[in-house]
Design a protein around this nucleic acid. Structure first.
Lengths: 112, 112
DNA sequence: TTAGCACATTAGAATCCGCGAATATTCGTG
DNA sequence: CACGAATATTCGCGGATTCTAATGTGCTAA
């Protein structure tokens, strides 16, 4: 189906897929909402403010790429973070953005 | 052009853009190549194994999203990491992948 | 078994991305 | 100025994403 040429290059691809999981505002919102623990699809859809179907699609992507795990309980399915380093990585990025915004504010507010 | 509704949602969009920068194997390769310091486009293209034009395109994206800075020296342009937390974030993700691969290996090698 | 909730999947249209090829820009040198 | 080297930009195509609406699936309870 698909030969793996360079194992290092393959690792980069996996890493890129992982980052694709974090490369959408809705998915970041979902990840963030799961920071304190597992939640159902409906809870997440409501928290994030998207339709159930849309939330389910994004959650499926996050699960495919390995960022989330699922657990079934009755008719509900609970999603949870698979590795807490994902949250750390998100927070690092958030820190970069925050700092950049502060700098831009600075330039705008103190142009003298 | 585009009104900003929710500032929190806007932050998520910026964060998503930042992650989009890391969401491509070539760009991860580029970021990684810049870990030890600034490099020119040609150096990077050669290291990563893509054409000059392609490298330039990816570098432009990384610059647009704020992951890289540029400095001109003569006819060459040096690219460098704008914030070292980007590398930390990449390494965290790389760690997640590594662990997942180890687990999968384990399952494959010890199915008893 | 039927009804109903929770969730997943599909289809299709609009949009976005990534690449190579060709062209443009910018700088240093003669 | 003309030229070459380094880098950037544009164009166009094929493929991937994302959204909504509709439909499918799986569980529980009566």
């Amino acid at each position: 189906m698909h030969e793996i040429a360079d194992p290092e290059e393959e690792l980069y691809r996996l890493q890129a897929d992982f980052c694709k999981g974090m490369a959408h505002s809705t998915r970041i919102h979902l990840l963030r909402s799961l920071k304190q623990g597992e939640k159902t699809v409906n809870e997440l859809a409501r928290l994030v403010g998207v339709t159930q179907a849309n939330a389910s699609q994004h959650l499926a992507i996050l699960r495919q790429f390995g960022l989330l795990n699922t657990r079934r309980d009755g008719s509900s399915i609970y999603y949870s973070i698979s590795d807490h380093r994902i949250i750390e990585a998100c927070e690092l990025v958030r820190g970069c953005i925050g700092e950049r915004l502060r700098k831009e504010q600075m330039v705008l507010k103190v142009p003298l």
